[in-house]
């Protein structure tokens, strides 16, 4: 086996780069605390969402101080509830599922981006600090009206939310 020294050098550098990439991702997962969407959302009978207390009525629920949960149904070709309203400075966990086909759930221009698969519940938690509005779109082809499938996430100033959003 006749490998040139330059090639050996490149082999070493390539390995260093690969290990560097893996280390960066591990740093993001541990030090920054970024978690991947995983199997903790559980399964669900997608033909009977109306019998599920979370998804029969898609909604946002307050579950603690500054902690909210949004039960979202992504279906051809809408997101429910729409808009999703939440006060600023809160932690929001999305639970998203689908009664028909695979969809995408993307809060536009952010890292909140996941697949929605019928039979599975996608769970992801984000922190919403500043008031503002985000678009939500479906980024997995789901049928002829796919390009119209959009929604909204509205982060309201805390004082305004108490007045407008408390009566659910």
């Amino acid at each position: 086996m006749n490998i040139h020294n330059y090639e050996k050098l490149w082999l070493v550098l390539a390995m260093v780069m690969i290990i560097g990439f893996i280390s960066t991702v591990v740093y993001g997962a541990t030090a920054v605390g970024i978690e991947m969407v995983n199997d903790e959302g559980g399964t669900i009978d997608s033909t009977a969402l109306e019998e599920d207390d979370r998804f029969a009525e898609p909604r946002v629920e307050r579950v603690g101080d500054n902690e909210y949960e949004a039960y979202v149904v992504a279906r051809q070709f809408i997101f429910e509830p729409d808009p999703i309203e939440i006060p600023a400075n809160s932690t929001l966990t999305f639970y998203v599922t689908s009664p028909d086909v695979i969809h995408g759930f993307e809060v536009v221009g952010t890292n909140a981006n996941a697949m929605v698969i019928p039979g599975e519940v996608t769970e992801l938690t984000v922190e919403l600090n500043e008031p503002g509005e985000y678009g939500i779109l479906c980024n997995e082809y789901c049928g002829g009206g796919h390009h119209t499938m959009e929604g909204k996430l509205i982060v309201q100033p805390e004082d305004e939310f108490e007045q407008g959003g408390n009566d659910e």
């Binding site: 560097g20 991947m36 809060v107 952010t110 890292n111 922190e127």
Partner: peptide
């Protein structure tokens, strides 16, 4: 180029972006 671009993409574009998924 790869090293610089990786650092830029990961630390500026990704970690600097809104709404990082934390759980």
């Amino acid at each position: 180029i790869l090293s610089v671009m990786w650092v830029f993409m990961y630390f500026v574009e990704f970690l600097g972006n809104d709404l990082t998924v934390l759980a």
